[in-house]
Design a protein around this nucleic acid. Structure first.
Lengths: 253, 253
DNA sequence: TCTTTTTATTCCATATTGCGGAATGCGTTT
DNA sequence: AAACGCATTCCGCAATATGGAATAAAAAGA
């Protein structure tokens, strides 16, 4: 691992995180390196047009070379293909079926899934129209939508899928807030009786929600004592996919 | 200037130019460095998620970190602001008024201009609706449009602005091809009598035409003997703007 | 206006760090 | 089975990056 190169990336990330054009001193402090070292690396970055320097103020900012490389890089991203190995790892670790779902209108659709090791499974009716307020992954998809979307959705209709489904508008809104707070959602028989699900959000390079990753299994196997480790596992794998899509936890949009 | 960092950028550019996911050997050959050196740098790049490595084949490709940084970088690009100092340099070097124009429907609009040093100027009627087939910058804008656009445009109407304006459809089409071939356009009295213009295309990070940069002045000053140096100057400055917008001459889309 | 302070940039002696040839190991082909 | 092509790891050498100090330039303050 090459020190100077690592430091160079630290500088690039600093420029990404600092948001505004930054002075040498600011960057130097942020990455905790002497100004002369940072300056030398910045000169090299400038030469490659990975950073640019404002005339007059001498401040540095991210350069145009990153734009075309970013466009190139996004060609390689196919969410389903990226998701597959991660879902496989999640299925192995959790010992449950794992899946990735996305929003389609007012419905959630599963775009990729991997079966877990056990024979006893939950299999829903195929291609059923699944509303967003029932089930762990779909509640995740709903929770991270805009307030307008959520209000529209709630105002429209809340079908009682099972007797556990939350259909009271106020209760659902509070529940969605809590989900967003926690960073995960659970569902115990809200969509299919006897089924339990755990799900976490997946974000893209712009920090926008693109899907929900989760697991699902029989409630008699997914007992409450396992929740903590299952939640940890789901969150970890969802974050992994987010990262591979270019999500940067540190950059806030 | 730091050697290892420069080499790292060479590798990133190689991955951009090679298009497909590339093996270590390919990259190593492309950048003309020993495999062990390239491998070490790639490992560092991978650690920073600037490149990713395909499982199974071990091939390398541009990583997700570049996407979010690319998005960040594009925030800093404001074409007018970027263009201004370049237009100023062009005006100084050519001693004529310089300007940058963009397409708006079937018209060309000047979005930024810098005056040259001489008092004798060409000043067109303000905010006139200028068709795309009359004048150097607008012919550039037209020449780099899609064939459909050009055919639509030509089929519609070709107004005779001055007696020099090219209005015969076939003649215009051949002329536009030649402009694209040369990489610049000239206009001698095609839009305003007594005026001469020279213009060249400006491209963005995706290689798409975003505008035309050019100069304009009295024909009695912009005499044919000066054309070669003026054309060189215009092309040079237009390329400079393209580069600052992230255009990479080597990457073909 | 003249100091003082801050900030970017350049310089240079030092040893740390990166270098690349060679060795290893894995997987595929003959 | 042997041989090849490939990615990856190893390690002794010295070239290279390092960072403190000097310099220059520009703000801030008096």
């Amino acid at each position: 691992m090459v020190q100077s190169v690592k430091r160079t990336f630290a500088i690039l990330n600093a420029l990404g995180n600092l948001k505004n054009k930054s002075s040498l001193a600011e960057i130097s402090e942020y990455v905790d390196l002497p100004p002369s070292t940072v300056h030398r690396l910045l000169t090299t970055l400038k030469d490659a047009r990975f950073v640019a320097q404002e005339e007059g103020t001498n401040k540095y900012y991210l350069g145009p070379s990153l734009i075309s490389l970013g466009i190139e890089a996004s060609n390689y991203l196919d969410i389903r293909r990226s998701a597959h190995p991660i879902l496989a790892s999640l299925a192995t670790e959790s010992e449950e079926d794992s899946y990735l779902s996305m929003v389609d209108g007012y419905l959630g659709v599963i775009i990729e899934s991997v079966a877990g090791p056990h024979a006893l499974k939950i299999i829903g009716p195929p291609q059923s129209r699944i509303p967003l307020h029932a089930g762990a992954a779909r509640k995740i998809l709903l929770a991270y939508q805009s307030d307008e979307f959520i209000n529209d959705y709630i105002g429209h209709q809340l079908k009682q899928v099972t007797d556990k489904t939350i259909i009271k508008p106020y209760e659902l809104k509070e529940h969605l807030k809590e989900i967003k707070n926690q960073g995960y959602a659970t569902s115990i028989g809200e969509h299919l009786v006897d089924a339990t699900g755990v799900s976490a959000p997946v974000f893209d390079a712009m920090g926008v929600l693109v899907g929900g990753m989760g697991i699902m299994g029989p409630s008699i196997r997914m007992t409450p004592d396992k929740y903590p480790s299952l939640i940890r596992s789901v969150k970890k794998h969802a974050l992994e996919l987010s990262l591979s899509l270019g999500y940067q936890p540190s950059i806030k949009y």
